[in-house]
Amino acid sequence: MRLLPAEQERLNIFLAAELARRRRGRGLRLSQAEAAALIADETMELARDGLGYAEVERRGYGLLGPDDVLDGVAELVDRIELEPVFADGPRLVVLVHPIARDAPPDLTGDPEPAWLDADTTLRVENAGPVAIGVTSHFHFFETNRELRFDRRAAWGMRLAVAPGTKVVFPPGDAREVRLVPFAGARVIRGHGGLVDGPLDAPGALDAALELARQRGYADAGA
């Protein structure tokens, strides 16, 4: 056979799944490891049978339901990552809560950012041709030069959103954002390259504004 490591790993899944199938056949409800193995094995076999990606993913959610597993196990099996071998080669399939859910989760929703308390509100327009995403702790003053807003008002400020949240500005759109001041020693290193030093040093703002002007940063306050 000249088995490759991936093929031996596939056998581990099969063996665990076979144990689970036999136990299920005796009327037993499955444990976390048994349930995960069975779902993994049978989902991979759907690809072997020739089904395409979307169908394999969809059917992965129907293999076991909460009644097939011990109490609490549906919640424990929260995520299974698999690489079934499709006709176009191995493809990663991720099943999220495949016992508790009947179908893949909807990943298309894009909720509005949850704004934290903030005193500063700014109108920001994306004057460029591509979407621009800004994160919570980026010095808003020196965000992409194609964002048009009052740069002076954003000095020493960042978006009033939770870490990990992105505010995305589609091309041509304008929206309001809320900003909060940086804390700590208030020293900016890196970011957009307009500051590289203490925010509160005398003349720092004017020097940065001048640099922004030279580099062509859009500025609604200029």
Binding site: T135, H137, A162, I188, G190
Partner: peptide
């Protein structure tokens, strides 16, 4: 509000949650 969040678009970045 200053939680360290790794990954794409988090706060685990040079000059942000990470000191240069």
């Amino acid at each position: 509000p200053d939680e360290i969040v790794p990954g794409w678009g988090g706060t685990h970045r040079d000059g942000l949650g990470v000191r240069a």
